[in-house]
Design a protein around this nucleic acid. Structure first.
Lengths: 217, 217
DNA sequence: GACACACTTGAATATTGACTCATGTTTCAA
DNA sequence: TTGAAACATGAGTCAATATTCAAGTGTGTC
């Protein structure tokens, strides 16, 4: 069960010029990526040791450097992979939503579930802020770009209010991220359905007291 | 101009039993904390070197270990100090708000400004997630506790809607944190007033289309 | 079956920087 | 004035580990 079966063909892998040439090579690369994901997720970037990664993968120490130029490179590959997987999971979970409001509901819920089942990947992305800042920014740039388009189009359709979509996207991403940390990683037995309902309600209706039928406007 | 003039008397400092005994000692401790804040903020925990900290502070290398047991300890002291300062700045900026809705508005704005003028402290807190997880959790535990009480009381007064305040607090903290990163740290020439207005609007009114006078309910 | 290329290996290297310690200096109370 | 406690110092110790490299083994093709 390969955690990272989607081996991204980043331009900067070593092993010859552009990825392994043989089946054996592809297997080894996949084993290394999986092992690196486990090791970084469990111990964090600085505590992680290349020798542990190769042991987990069941290959010799030197083999690592056939496939990656450095410890940082494999980390960056992992962050990029994680970004693609997260975006994919979210767009899948939201694709049948009848409108943006409903998509937000589904998205929050799906994100919390994704975090819970991919704790170590979550950690890797967060730590990228310090280990590989460029990868981190790229992760959120890509994410926010797609998200912003969704909001802008929905606003044009009248499904949501108009507003500064860049700022709203960052606020929404931040909210989900922190909820993921609090309820997905730290307290991983919380009732995710209830939490995501509460969060979705906040994001959709805000904190303001509800306008009820018959209230003066 | 001491960045960290509020030297917290954490129980675990070295130098005898509980902090410096003489004025000279207090001055040296303050210089070390200031220097450590600069160094960690600029280079991050792992790139930071004790020797750089002592050079910045203008003291000998050995002096560091008179005041701190380890690199990690000074980092933890910094995170705790940062927490106290952030909470203080925010509660100050919000104390004259006539109601919770207005307090949220002011709070977001004040937070973005605080982050922009304390970029390095922001970085230190974020990195604590990986360097000193206990300190990080304590930072947010303390923060969220106060925040949650405010929300709960405001809800009882009818100033805001009722809801799962723990979840709402985490969503709100996350939103502010990400906005701080995006507009306070990364793009530090953004129009903070406009961004915080947009963010406050989202948090107060949500994404839902506005109910206008005369709309059917 | 033999050449070439892809891949594997782990002992040895090299760097780095946190932390110790033995010694020296300053402060201050009596 | 003096003794003890507080403080200051930086050369040297030491462990950790990322990375290199020279010597292999496997795989496929003509």
């Amino acid at each position: 069960m390969s955690q990272y079966s989607s081996v991204s063909d980043g331009a900067d892998r070593t092993a010859g010029k552009s990825g392994p040439k043989t089946e054996r090579g592809r297997r080894t690369l996949r084993k290394l990526l999986d092992a690196a994901g486990e090791e970084f997720g469990l111990r964090g970037y600085h505590e992680a040791a290349i020798s542990h990664i190769t042991q987990r993968a069941g290959v010799g120490l030197g083999t690592f450097y056939v496939y990656f130029k450095s410890k940082e490179e494999v980390f960056r590959a992992l962050v990029a992979d994680m970004g693609a997987r997260t975006r994919h999971a979210l767009s899948e979970s939201v694709k049948d939503a009848p409108n943006r409001i409903e998509a937000e509901r589904l998205g929050i819920r799906a994100y919390l579930e994704f975090v819970r089942t991919h704790k170590s990947l979550y950690r890797i992305v967060m730590e990228a802020q310090f280990v590989a800042p460029e990868s981190y920014r790229e992760y959120y740039r890509a994410f926010s770009e797609g998200y912003r388009q969704q909001l802008t189009q929905a606003a044009a359709r009248g499904e949501i209010s108009k507003g500064d979509d860049e700022a709203r996207v960052w606020a929404l991403m931040g909210a989900s991220t922190f909820l993921g940390l609090r309820y997905g990683v730290w307290q991983d037995n919380a009732d995710i359905a209830a939490v995501s309902e509460a969060a979705a309600d906040l994001m959709i209706n805000g904190l303001a007291p509800r306008v009820k039928k018959g209230d003066a406007l």
